[in-house]
Design a protein around this nucleic acid. Structure first.
Lengths: 207, 207
DNA sequence: CTTTGTGAAGTCCTTCACAGCC
DNA sequence: GGCTGTGAAGGACTTCACAAAG
């Protein structure tokens, strides 16, 4: 194996592979061939082998891949092996759904703090976390939290982002349907269902 | 302009352009150049012009594009011009967040029905919609609803999908972190934040 | 002078074809 | 026989460079 740069498209597929592998692990499977994995996803088996070849060759010819080893490698590439602490801002419906979502833990994220500006919510306990007042966001500097999750109404998104940046986060997951402006050393990922919705529409037959 | 096939990647970017255009429209802007749009997004201006050129040439040289016209064209390509009716299944935190999300309307989707299997919720009214019992999903056949939104716990996802297919939907938006099996004429889009999370992790500096 | 529209060149990614190994 | 690993070929998308138009 040569140490080529890993293509962006491969990085985009790794989480998809990871999810599938975690699901089949729960079903008790120990090994998987590129063909079996391909059947679960909409990807060709040669594509999968090529992708895996970028970070080592650990498949067994005639057999397939050891799932546990594969999961470990993918997590390493995606830097998911160490638990990363995240803070949630906005505990409305969306924020609550985020708190309840099991995927965070599965991917090595730990939501360690939650903030809201509604005094009725402040002090309430959700999943072992006490909701704090949003004006205390800067406090998370002490907690080694490096990810902020924005789940507030869009008019409050920018000021929330500013507060999070001030508090020292390095990455932001933004659920508000708007652009937010941050220093370019901060990585922002905006999740907007609308873009997926539009794709659903395109690929669906007309009524 | 020649009628080439529109590249997949262009289709993927169109919703992103659309969102940006809708945002600047709200700010009162009437025309925009490819460079201005590029500055808002992480895309090169030549890319934008090339993308737009696939579906006609309606830019004014020396000026830019008429935003209203552009929005109309993109909506046409993405088949978003006619309102599509959707049914939501599962009115928990996530489902409630979905109901409250303004993006649906903006993109021509109308959530016209909601279902849940919790009898405490059935009968309650949310945003002009009365929550119906999940066993009545087949009833939506009468309502010309062709999209189903799955926001139920993952163990109930497959049976919900089966019921929706039986009820005649043509597309499914799946928020459950699992694969669902449907006839291949049905388009399914699974939204799993975990994949975005993993990308956030990869592009963030190590702790 | 600004900005679009577009062939051509360049880059990146996917698929093929098959050698190598279990 | 079955499946991985990979150079090479092929295909898709992006960027360049510049002509054409307001």
């Amino acid at each position: 194996m040569r140490y080529y740069k890993i293509p962006n498209e491969t990085i985009r597929r790794l989480p998809i592979y990871l999810r599938a592998l975690l699901i089949v692990t729960q079903q008790g499977k120990k090994e998987i061939s590129s063909q079996e994995l391909a059947d679960l996803l909409t990807v060709k088996s040669t594509q999968i082998r090529k992708d895996f070849s970028f970070f080592g060759d650990f498949g067994k010819r005639g057999v397939g891949y050891d799932i546990e080893e594969l999961v470990m490698h993918i997590k390493k590439i995606l830097r998911l092996r160490d638990v990363r602490k995240a803070a949630l801002v906005g505990v409305g419906n969306l924020g609550s759904a985020v708190l309840a979502y099991p995927g965070f833990k599965m991917y090595g994220f730990d939501i360690a703090a939650a903030f809201d500006c509604d005094c009725n919510k402040v002090g309430r306990k959700v999943k072992d976390i006490i909701i704090e007042d949003a004006s205390n966001i800067q406090a998370l500097k002490k907690h080694k939290i490096d990810i902020g999750i924005i789940a507030v109404p869009k008019d409050a998104a920018q000021q929330t982002a500013d507060a999070l940046v001030k508090a020292g986060v390095k990455g932001i997951l933004n659920f508000s349907p708007c652009y937010i402006d941050v220093p370019k050393s901060i990585k922002v990922i905006t999740i907007d269902i609308a873009t997926d919705l539009a794709r659903l529409s395109y690929y669906m037959p007309a009524r």
